[in-house]
Design a protein around this nucleic acid. Sequence first.
RNA 1: GGGGGAGUGCCCGAGUGGUUAAAGGGAGCGGACUGUAAAUCCGUUGGCGCAGCCUACCUAGGUUCAAAUCCUAGCUCCCCCA
Length: 409
Amino acid sequence: MADQRLIDDLAVGTVEVLPDGALSAKLTAAEREGRPLRVKLGVDPTAPDLHLGHTVVLNKLRQFQDAGHVAVLIIGDYTARIGDPSGLSKTRPRLDPAVIDANARTYQEQAFHILDPDPARLEVRFNGEWLATLTMEQLFELTATTTVARILERDDFEKRFNAHQPISMLEMLYPLAQGYDSVAVRSDIELGGTEQKFNLFMGRDLQQYFGQQPQAIMTVGILPGTDGVERMSKSLRNYIGVTEDPRDVYGKVMSIPDQVIMTYFRLLTAHHADEIAALDAGLAGGALNPRDLKARLAREILTRLRGVEAATAAEEHFDKVFRRHEAADDLQELALVPGDLEDGRVFLPKVMERWFGATRSEWRRRIEQGGVSLDGEPVAELAVPLAALAGRRLKAGKSAAAQGLIKGL
RNA sequence: GGGGGAGUGCCCGAGUGGUUAAAGGGAGCGGACUGUAAAUCCGUUGGCGCAGCCUACCUAGGUUCAAAUCCUAGCUCCCCCA
């Protein structure tokens, strides 16, 4: 019999585990047969930069690895050429093969921050391996297993259909292609976001058609972005990137609204189900300070992503700069060059553009709005005497990124 | 194959010849507040050493004293019928 505690832990952060009791049955079967489960995750190499939202499902996969099972990571180099229509209101642009290839590599590098790369626990496959060689005849067979009505049941297709928006034939093949992946790798369980549910079920159908035991499916929750409302996404600019500077990761986690703290714990950390429940109760009952809990969250996320040292350093930096409002101890040096000096003054917008990017107009605005300070005193004029700059700490806005120690000539 | 509609700033979206760097909303940025936030309030959001100048409403031409608004061609997208 499968360990109930493990089942509970694996269920944390999931939205659905289907069919009922399937997870337990799969674990029990694996134990009986003395083999690890093959847990599939398919990813399309469309987003070269991973953010925490992408890592939710990777964390879940890692949990299976830690429990002794095999993660089968499928890089959808071929399906990316179709463009997954899931959750989108319009057709996704198809990608160039060269771009897909580059993205796939970047994806793997970043995914290994979270997955255990041990070959005994991880199998990486490209689905072009079996999709590229399908014959027309095989494609006919595949398409004959389902119906147009069935495909149109999909929520996003249905919406688009009803709204008279286009749905290409190609897109309709997507669920079949992804489902066939499950057949090709003989998966026991497939993970995915909730928007993947339809595709995941298609895997079950096809496996049954090809005489295999159908996979169990697990959908994980959607991670809200730093705004706490919308799902994390790059285009909404509410994301926390996996490869971002640890200080920024820490700061961004600290900036999430309190009400999503526990969601982050469930989706991004690897606590036992009972521990999560205890934290939740502590927070709700007021026994735990939200700020401190958030700090713990940030630390744990960073530790997993970058290791303990990076996490500790980021936390120290944050406390120093934002809690105690002190200068960071390794301020970047901001160098002035002879040409910056005119009549003994330095025109700040110009040099700040050089130091931090953005445009001179942007810096002009920020200075005029009191958003730029020298040793904590707001700068009142655009052209500042050299004597008032050299050796001072310049800081722009609340971000720690735009600050530094000005070095004189 | 036939008919119709649309392309405006980061996004959505108003604007049908002049007072439009372009209403309104979203989002961002700066400030106040704070727990680091959120919420709220105020300000701000094309570029430029800026009380001024330059570039801008898909692209290229044209009409006009004056064009996001009119004309021509092109590009892209969408809908309907078959």
